[in-house]
Amino acid sequence: MNIVVAMKEIPDIQQIRIRNRKPVTDDVPRTLGNIDKNALEAAVQIKEKTDSQVIVVGVGSSEVEDTFKEALAAGGDEARLVVWDGELESSQSAQLLAALITKIDSVGLILFGEGSGDNYSSQVGSRVAQILGLPQVGYVNRIEIEGSTARVTRSLEDCEQDLEVALPAVIMVSSDINTARIPSVTQILKAGKKPKEVLAANELGVAIPAAQVETISNLAPEMERRQISVKTISDLVKALADEGFGGGR
């Protein structure tokens, strides 16, 4: 079976600087979301137990091929990518990814991270599941494959659900499912030689809808705080009391 892992090319969040309340993303290196790497690791662990191939899919900038070398180094066998110049909104990403996935044979499992590293809107996996008419489970921290069934654990705020889901299915993993492995030198060097297909969006044969969401502004929040420097613990305790947060058991 083929295990598809959808990963998002994002700017390296750690390197984004805020200038005049606006995020400056120019020249920020592209990378892959951390939870996406957990999804890939989950796929690779399944591959090690079953006879399967791990195909990473993604949509990204003109650098997307380079960005995805990291995924191929970390255990992806093959990459299918779409180059898209400019902003993409969740509904559009979902259409592009669904079109990419439709072209892949015998897909058993489609894995996503629970949220992307930049926008964290957590929509795309669910949207892809709906477009493809597949069952889905989110916030998964355990996956075991048994024949044509996946046994998974969904971790919610107050409980865990052990579920059985018929394959093919869309699974969105949370970061605690595993620790993503560090790729070796050989794996990194071989990444560039693994098969990959890079398409332009118009080669997918699917109409990409107009963006459904409009961003009116995106600014660093104004966080005006008093920043009162207190010198001693007693000053601090007094300040707390003055604010109405007294101590005492």
């Binding site: 070398k69 990194i188 990444a191």
Partner: peptide, 12 residues
């Protein structure tokens, strides 16, 4: 990109 990834691997 490979060199950057190897550097990052060793740092990680």
């Amino acid at each position: 990109k490979e060199e950057i990834l190897i550097q990052k691997m060793a740092r990680d």
